[in-house]
Design a protein around this nucleic acid. Structure first.
Lengths: 335, 335
DNA sequence: TTGTACGCGTTATCAG
DNA sequence: CTGATAACGCGTACAA
């Protein structure tokens, strides 16, 4: 392995002091063109690039922000991260991702990057530890939450109003003539799971429909969860005329399972998803769903984080962005 | 914002020297239990955590590796990254992700993290710059490639044999009675695009079939690319009896487009994908495809990177891992 | 067992 | 316009 050049080597080769090299590196004004050239020459010759550990140590900042998320296997987060990146780039921050895989220990490891000054701030797209533990772990560190705010975690958050979104989805089903509506949810403690179920129950109640407990099936967000939920539904003695699913993946698993069992979608049962995943549009039938403003959520979250890093106290800020129902072909419209 | 405690503050509060605090932090032996307690007490009181910038600077290493990838919107990479993470964790490295979004400038920014010692090494899951430029940019830095080796980039690589994989896929189609086989590919310069096309042409040639140029349609990897390719195919005066697609996304776009046009899959046309994406199993019809050992590719790549970071010279190593054909329902079996 | 003092690579302050 | 030097926070010889 070659020995790596430092600022001293450059200074020596150029016949100047390290201070002058530093000035050239940081594009300061007061350097004679000729010495500047000598320095740049030496830099090129030695393939020198400044060690940012030194710079960051000296400046007490790294110009980096961390995005913490459960897993990248859910493409939903892709656009959220893009929003974060583009907002951060405006102030010359770069973005790094770390995954927690649902493991509080891995999450804590990433938080250590914050505590130990390796990054300047973080956006939490998921949260594995308890809210109060997170608040404690992130004391004095700029952090915000996006998509999935955690109860008890004192940090600004950006998300849609999940309860209202589910409520609107159920209203849409009801307005299209469906009265017997099942719910495929998740039994975890994520705020989105809880809020979407609340919205479902609230809508049913407001429209004076009574929920059938057999039809509230909580298997999770994944395709396989949708498959399992649909199998359980099929074994019920009565079938609903519509199903609201907590995610598009779940909806797709459900649709393929129903269809395989000879139940037509949307002919016999309508199915509605959530998130507007890319596949929803291509699936057969195309899935009617609820769209979140993913990019905007990420952008706004980064913007709040930048505020916090500037010292602005905004830990109590809770922003909700508008959702939208995307009509496609998996819901039958009875008039 | 609270002032952040340093090792000095801890030392002062505990009434010891910074050296002793450092010894406690690094779990060295020669510290009296009672002083150790005093130090730990002070650490807790001050909510102190060591500034890793100082430590990393001192030690010349960060125990972090970077994964560079185009975008996380393709869930294919999720398992690859998992393999990297789990191998890296065995030697106490943590993994961070940076996206390039196909932009050489963003890629260069991430490479800067390497050049500037912020991370110890990197796995390239994509490459935006030219191979020779990358070789130059990464001189003296431990790097490896996975999935998509770049011509001219002198770094160890791990991938499947893309040409043979495509060849095997076409053979499979032919053995199941298909003779008129179209190819939906990508016109970029990725090695996988080129190799898979080569494999397609080679197989046709070996089985003495002549490729119809109208049926070689290169629109890309995405669902929309599959839609576009299928539309172009439909407008041909003759239709093939099978299509080999460069990705599962492409295959799904193609299937939904064919089906919408009243062409049955696999009844009229069989469609084969590539990658074994999660959705392929759930799609209707379930997509016959080629499986890559994603986790193993990542794991092996990380293992090679660890070797390189230990100083082992392995830049010329090229590893190919076995692929596998996954039979499902999108290919008709004529006997 | 503990403390002193130096150096990691950089930037910032001050003289000149 | 340039140079010498003191930090930044930490780890580690060496000394005590």
């Amino acid at each position: 392995m070659r020995i790596i050049a430092t600022i001293k080597d450059v200074a020596k080769l150029a016949g100047v002091s390290v201070a002058t090299v530093s000035r050239v590196l940081n594009k300061e004004a007061n350097v004679l063109p000729q010495t500047k050239l000598r320095v740049q020459d030496a830099i090129a010759k030695l393939h020198y690039s400044p060690n940012l550990l030194g710079r960051n140590l000296r400046q007490g900042a790294t110009k980096k922000i961390l995005v913490l998320l459960n897993t990248i296997s859910n493409p939903f987060y892709s656009q959220v991260v893009r929003g974060i990146e583009e907002c951060a780039a405006k102030e010359h921050y770069s973005v790094m991702l770390c995954m927690t895989h649902g493991d509080p220990v891995l999450e804590q490891q990433s938080i250590t990057l914050l505590q130990t000054k390796l990054v300047d701030g973080a956006v939490f797209l998921s949260a594995e530890q308890e809210g109060t533990a997170l608040t404690e772990a992130c004391r004095g560190i700029p952090v915000v939450q996006a998509c999935e705010p955690r109860d008890g975690f004192l940090a600004a958050s950006v998300s849609i109003d999940n309860k209202k979104a589910a409520y609107d989805a159920i209203s849409y089903l009801i307005q299209n003539g469906h009265k017997q509506i099942a719910f495929f949810g998740a039994s975890d403690t994520l705020s989105s799971s809880i809020c979407r179920k609340d919205g479902y129950l609230q809508a049913l109640s407001d429209y004076e429909l009574t929920p059938n407990p057999d039809w509230i099936i909580e298997e999770g967000f994944s395709i396989n969860a949708g498959v399992r939920a649909a199998k359980r539904l099929i074994s019920c003695k009565e079938l609903p005329d519509a199903v609201f699913c907590i995610s598009d993946s779940c909806a797709i698993g459900a649709i393929r399972t129903l269809v395989e069992a000879g139940i037509s979608v949307p002919g016999d049962i309508s199915v509605m998803g959530f998130d507007n995943a890319e596949i929803s549009k291509a699936f057969l039938p195309a899935v009617t769903t609820v769209q979140q403003p993913r990019y905007e959520i990420g952008y706004k979250a980064a913007s709040l984080l930048l505020d916090a890093m500037r010292g602005e106290e905004n830990r109590a800020v809770k922003i909700t962005l508008p959702h939208e129902i995307i009509e496609r072909n998996s819901v039958e419209k009875h008039t």
